[in-house]
Design a protein around this nucleic acid. Structure first.
Lengths: 152, 152
DNA sequence: ATTGAAATCATTAGCGA
DNA sequence: TCGCTAATGATTTCAAT
């Protein structure tokens, strides 16, 4: 993985698009005092180099009836089975993220569920049914006071 | 927080925009066999109702020289000081996320740093300098095999 | 990096189911 | 209420400089 050296224009473009991925290139161009085509070219290059990997809209899960978000620390019976477990986790739509980590847990998993019943059901019927999982610890997310992008 | 009832067209629009926030409305319209203006109207409504809260590009931190991502579990001296701690954490650009959680830790924090030295420095000079923090546990993120959006 | 032109898109209004 | 069509202005994209 080689590093890509960006300049201050790239930096400003990334900043703007982190705030709003749909911001018109011409808006950014006017703000940065360059031509619209320049912004277009820079973004193409950032994508080509793999710096910008995509874009997504952000959704308020609660508005769609998904009110319970939980971070789970997972202990496995054996460290070798991690990828097997991840393959099983992938099949559950409740799982939105998984992280291999060093330290006390083999992995962390983030799940989004409708309510506590739904979460409980997920935990017992789906997660604890995976035989490679020895035990889990649940950290229910009450609030996310900071959620932002890396300042580049 | 009232729930907003979406239909299958809303669902498809959200799906498409989660994959690519910049996808032209007309593309989505053709895929869904409706007029472009319809997609526009639906998206406006989803924004107005607070379902869609924004959009952002995704960046490969490693490509910009930020190679070490760490999840930190934090124990406080006293649960009452949580918001004070978050205010201090906000000032550190390395912190990209913080979560209040139930259970063993008062909060989790995700930090992005250039390398282990940078992380170590952050931990000792910044995080452990916060007097309300009793102790921390570091979970270095080795890989993120699952990272996706809620299927609505 | 800029310009300028062509193609495509976003946005709005009025109409109709 | 919701989706459609059509018109306008803005944006994206690309080739040439």
């Amino acid at each position: 993985m080689e590093k890509y050296q960006i300049d201050s224009l790239d930096r400003r473009i990334i900043e703007e698009l982190q705030r709003d991925a749909r911001k018109p290139f011409l808006d950014i161009a006017r703000k940065c005092q360059v031509a619209g085509g320049t912004i277009h070219q820079r973004i193409e290059k950032l994508k080509e180099k793999g710096v910008i990997t995509g874009s997504k809209i952000t959704i308020d899960h609660k508005k769609l009836g998904y009110g319970v978000e939980v971070l789970l620390g997972i202990h496995l019976v054996n460290a070798k089975v991690v990828s097997k477990v991840v393959k099983k986790l992938e099949k559950f739509p409740e799982v939105v993220q998984s992280l291999y980590t060093t330290g006390n847990y083999a992995l962390f998993v983030k799940v989004v569920t409708k309510d506590i019943d739904h979460f409980h059901n997920f935990l017992v019927k789906k997660l604890q049914a995976i035989e490679e999982i020895r035990s889990t610890e649940s950290f229910i997310c009450l609030e996310t006071p900071i959620d932002r992008e890396l300042q580049v």
